[in-house]
Simulated scan of single mutants.
Amino acid sequence: MTFLIFLLACGAAASTGILFKPGQWYDSLVKPDFTPPNWLFPVAWSIIYLLLAWAGYRLTLIPGSQVVLALWAAQIALNTLWTPVFFGAHHIFAGMVILALLWLVVAAMVVMAMQLDVITGLILFPYLVWLCVAAALNFSILRNNR
């Protein structure tokens, strides 16, 4: 049941991608050569959301994980916010600010999770890697589309 709650939270975050699609505006932006192909985004995010739900569930089983769980809640809120700001409102700079905060929260969450349980930390690590790609992409779009 607890896993389902985390999965539902991830599903809510993922639903913003359905509501606020990249569309013509995003297609018209100047993007860097390292931009992943469009098909990779839903694949990567589906995997990340499943890993996030699993990590959240695992954290509930670990004594002393309250701060990491608070970071989990903060990151899912920031994650949910980015899509409507960037794709919905077309605010590239605000999206970059949200993404920078998200990266910091997730980095702290990964480090703290690793201290509590190495497996949970490793489960979260791909998310941090993907956020590095997303931040580099967002920053490049910001720089090239003033």
Rank of each mutant, 00 (worst) to 15 (best):
I62L: 03
G88M: 11
V118G: 04
A108G: 11
F6W: 12
L131S: 00
L71S: 07
G56K: 07
F87L: 12
A55P: 12
V129F: 00
D27W: 06
M112I: 05
W39Y: 14
A53I: 13
L40T: 15
L78R: 07
M1Q: 09
N144W: 14
L142S: 04
L137F: 00
P36D: 11
P126S: 01
A100M: 15
R143F: 06
A53C: 06
N138P: 02
I18C: 02
R146Q: 13
I141F: 05
F87T: 00
I141T: 03
L8S: 12
S140E: 10
V110F: 02
I119R: 15
V133N: 02
A12Y: 15
A14L: 15
W25S: 01
V129G: 00
L59G: 01
Y127K: 06
A77D: 03
F125M: 14
V110C: 06
F20V: 02
T80M: 12
T120R: 12
L4E: 05
V43G: 00
R58H: 03
P126M: 00
T35E: 09
L29K: 00
A134N: 04
A134E: 01
A53G: 14
N144F: 14
Y49S: 00
G95M: 04
D33F: 14
R58K: 14
Q66V: 08
L8P: 09
L128V: 01
T60Q: 07
T60M: 08
F93K: 04
V68H: 06
G64H: 13
N38Q: 15
G17R: 12
G95I: 05
A12H: 13
F34I: 07
V105Y: 13
G64N: 12
L50Y: 13
Y57S: 04
A12S: 15
I123E: 00
N38D: 10
G56M: 13
G11Y: 15
G56H: 07
R58D: 05
V105C: 09
L69K: 12
R143H: 06
S140C: 02
I92R: 10
N38F: 02
P37G: 09
V97G: 11
I47T: 08
